[in-house]
Design a protein around this nucleic acid. Sequence first.
DNA 1: TTTACTATGAGCTACATT
DNA 2: AATGTAGCTCATAGTAAA
Length: 448
Amino acid sequence: MLLSLAAAGTLSEKEEKMLALANMGYSLEDASIAMDRCGPEASVAVLTDCICAAQMAREEDCHLPEDNLKPNYLCIGTSRPKKRKVFEMKKNIIEESIRLPNPMIGYGTPTLQPERIHRSLPVEARGPPYFYYENVALTPKGVWDTISRFLFDIEPEFVDSKYFCAAARKRGYIHNLPIEHRFPLIPLPPLTVQQAFPLSRRWWPEWDTRDKLNCIQTAIASAKLTERIRSALERYEGGVPPEAVQRYVLEQCRKWNLVWVGRDKLAPLEPDEVEMLLGFPRNHTRGGGISRTDRYKSLGNSFQVDTVAFHLSVLRDMYPDGINVLSLFSGIGGAEVALHRLGIKLKNVVSIEKSKVNRDIVRSWWEQTNQTGSLIDFDDVQKFDGKLVEQLVDGIGSFDLVVGGSPCNNLAGSNRVSRDGLEGKESSLFYDYFRILDLVRCAMRNRQ
DNA sequence: TTTACTATGAGCTACATT
DNA sequence: AATGTAGCTCATAGTAAA
């Protein structure tokens, strides 16, 4: 009865499940057959397992080759979900959308308290397992409403990491953790660019009034751009340039997150500076065969560690002996680093991450931090099925925390090409977070 | 209430350059 | 073959002014 609490009144439980399955890439025919076969009470996780089983059987019958295993199609997608139908179902959903808070401080930061710091969770949503889901705050309309509906109607906690470090990072978090008695990582990181980059102070002109950086993304400014700016500025010989020039330079600074590194000289952040701003140990992503471009990409896709750690800090006193973690879309291990820095012992970490360089980064961090637990990794969330969950739960007992941020490519504002929303090729992997969380909850319930 | 203007943003891809 | 560059078919929210 997972979705009984979904969307009071907007969609029926059956429609909600159909939409979920369509979004996961199944044909509506397959979804409908599975629902008939498994009954109205079946969860989406059970339904997907059922479709997979049917398709595998079908495959055996026909001796089909495996090459129609496409990324967005779990198991063997037979046909693309009918776009029109998905659109119509989606249209029904759009009612009152979730609004972003201002200031974006969620249930509080180390220094700021909101008006109200209380919430009550529906009984079905309570942990264990605790879960923590993350994605960009500024999505196309309706996306957070859908995500929230799938995660027990819990209201997202929107937080801008500019209250935790010197760079903005507006994100939404849906979790079932307590929100009382949080504490921050020590030492508190610098909160302004001037504190974070003391050497730049000497070159920072009065008319550049920024004291925070914008969101750290995956691409950086070209050398050509900083050269153009330098030659535009050097004509004024260190004096104050005309307002039009100031405006142009500031616009580029904001767009590309540039910092001052010399007279008239601006530069993009170095990878180790990004590591510092995001709360990772220095050289966390360095070496081991990773290219500079990939380093920027992996870092740009990551958590801000201090922010996430503040939210996860409540786990420390709840689990003095340590926790078992299931980490989806682990990337460079933001959640793992946060937990470790909080002093929470990591017993078993099961980490699913597609990129090999990222898996290597987490593995090498794990080996360098004298972990006593074990790190088990997988590469594909879509192949992570109920059998595997059962097997893991049998092995390690239970998962205390299911953490992850699913891909934002199709949600993020910078994307001009494929900002397709939650049904986009990568962003629809959110439904696998939901599916796997559901499988874990089922497995743990069955063990009791 | 509407309208005009501004700022932001875990990105994508064809093509040039090395 | 890998890396760098530029332009991009923008959506959304906030602000000030009418």
